[in-house]
């Protein structure tokens, strides 16, 4: 469970996140939507403890800066950042060793098979395409079996197989009780599984929609455009 309480992040004069409060329960998928520069990536990085901010973030009750919180948190960044001199297999081994995981090899093998990486295990990070790097990045984030997973634009640069597998992975993690945040511009990619949608604009939450409160026949895309492009229109309840 993720609880964001009154989070404010400022870059010099720019107010990137303005008093944001948000709760994501276990087994729930929250989608972050918003135009470029709305503050989605800043919010995600703050939740992951990669930025300083005002306010508080707890992960299953632990402050997000603590080792207890980090042990159950997974993060897939927008730009996959691999180590150029490590092979794909060594990336997973490094994560397993650093997180002190036990009996991880079988799960690692499953992930590599799932993302078509079995024949790339001995390839170096620098030899992989951006899409391949993204797949390895996802495998590294999922390997410690986190209870909270945060994806920042996970589908960018992926091939159709990769997109399908990540969508399936997100659905299965949700089933297993993971609290998930996914930031994306591809609204239709999360249409099936979303529970809550947080639409951000100018560093604020412009609207928080729950699937149950969405009007019949209305899609997530309709809701998004009704809020982002027609500011004065009432948010569906």
């Amino acid at each position: 469970m993720i609880i964001v309480n009154d989070l404010t992040k400022r870059y010099n004069k720019l107010l990137a996140n303005d008093h944001i409060s948000l709760t994501v329960n276990s087994g729930e998928l929250t989608v972050l939507l918003g135009p470029n520069g709305a503050g989605k990536s800043t919010l995600i990085k703050s939740i992951c403890g990669l930025l300083r901010f005002k306010g508080s973030v707890t992960i299953n009750g632990f402050d997000n800066h603590t080792a207890d919180a980090k042990r159950i948190l997974g993060y897939v960044p927008e730009m996959p950042a691999l180590y150029p001199m490590l092979t794909v297999a060594e990336h997973l081994e490094f994560i397993a060793k650093a997180y002190r995981l036990e009996h991880w090899q079988e799960y690692a093998d499953q992930l590599l098979t799932r993302f078509d990486l079995k024949d790339k295990v001995n390839k170096l990070g620098k030899e992989l395409s951006k899409g391949m790097q993204q797949k390895v990045s996802v495998c590294c984030a999922v390997l410690p079996r986190p209870k909270v997973l945060i994806f920042d634009e996970p589908l960018v640069g992926l091939d159709p197989h990769g997109i399908r597998e990540i969508k399936a992975l997100i659905a299965s993690l949700k089933q297993e009780g993971c609290a998930l945040i996914v930031s994306t511009h591809m609204i239709d990619s999360v249409e099936e599984d979303w529970d809550t949608t947080c639409i951000m604009k100018s560093g604020k939450i412009a609207a928080l929609c729950h699937r149950s409160s969405l009007g019949s026949g209305k899609t997530l895309e309709d809701t998004y455009f009704s809020i982002v492009e027609q500011e004065d229109q009432e948010v569906p309840k």
Binding site: L86, E90, K97, A98
Partner: peptide, 18 residues
Amino acid sequence: TGIGGTGVTALFHKHVRE
């Protein structure tokens, strides 16, 4: 191939490999 160490020492062993 492979990374040695456990926990925080894995960082050093990773650097050695690199």
